[in-house]
């Protein structure tokens, strides 16, 4: 498999198939990152498109010496997610009443909670609900570490904070998430 850095070089030379390959490799990861952060599939789709559009436009600024392409893409995604978070903060404040009872809503929604939902889907939904309740700083640290599988150093590059801060955020985020999941009735393995 051709490395990402080589594909980027091919893209910059005008090779459309190299860009297609990059899109195919990273769409799922970026979409999941956006979905876990926003808790909305629709917003996640829009944000994923926005991320790739921005990456495509700024592809020339990527330097492989500074880190992996995946990490760079995650940084771009994170910046867009922060913009999106700030943009929608006002909407969320007005929707605070709706946020208070998301589980009731989802229980009656055939799309989110179908009768034949697998246990994995159920857990995924519970994790999503718990993630919504923790602060954005802790949430992004946990998502990057435990749902995206990034190393501490990579998270440090993406967040642009010292290593100690990364460890602290991951630690606090995990403890908070575990507490919330336990409250929801999720049993640890």
């Amino acid at each position: 498999m051709e490395p990402d850095a080589q594909l980027v070089q091919n893209c910059l030379r005008g090779d459309g198939s190299a860009w297609e390959e990059l899109v195919r490799r990273h769409t799922r990861r970026i979409y999941n990152l956006c979905w876990r952060f926003t808790s909305s599939r629709h917003e996640a789709e829009d944000l994923t498109q926005e991320v790739f559009l921005r990456v495509y436009k700024t592809l020339g600024s990527y330097r492989s010496a500074h880190g992996g392409f995946a990490t760079w893409m995650t940084s771009v995604t994170r910046n867009l997610l922060i913009d999106h978070y700030r943009r929608t903060r006002r909407d969320r404040l007005t929707d605070s009443l709706d946020d208070a009872m998301p589980r009731l809503e989802e229980k009656h929604s055939p799309v989110r909670r179908p009768d034949q939902a697998t246990l994995a889907n159920e857990l995924s939904g519970q994790v999503q609900n718990a993630l919504k309740k923790i602060s954005p700083d802790l949430r992004e640290a946990v998502i990057l570490r435990d749902l995206q599988g990034l190393e501490y150093a990579e998270i440090q590059d993406v967040l642009g904070v010292p290593e100690g801060t990364v460890k602290s955020r991951i630690n606090r985020g995990r403890i908070e998430l575990a507490r919330l999941l336990e409250q929801m009735g999720v049993r640890p393995e």
Binding site: W19, R28, A120, P188, E189
Partner: peptide, 27 residues
Amino acid sequence: GMLARLHQLELEAVPAGLERRILEQTL
């Protein structure tokens, strides 16, 4: 225990047509 369960979660599938839309937007 919670981490063990979290690490079992698979990535969500990409919605149909998302890759095509991205390619249309870019290429």
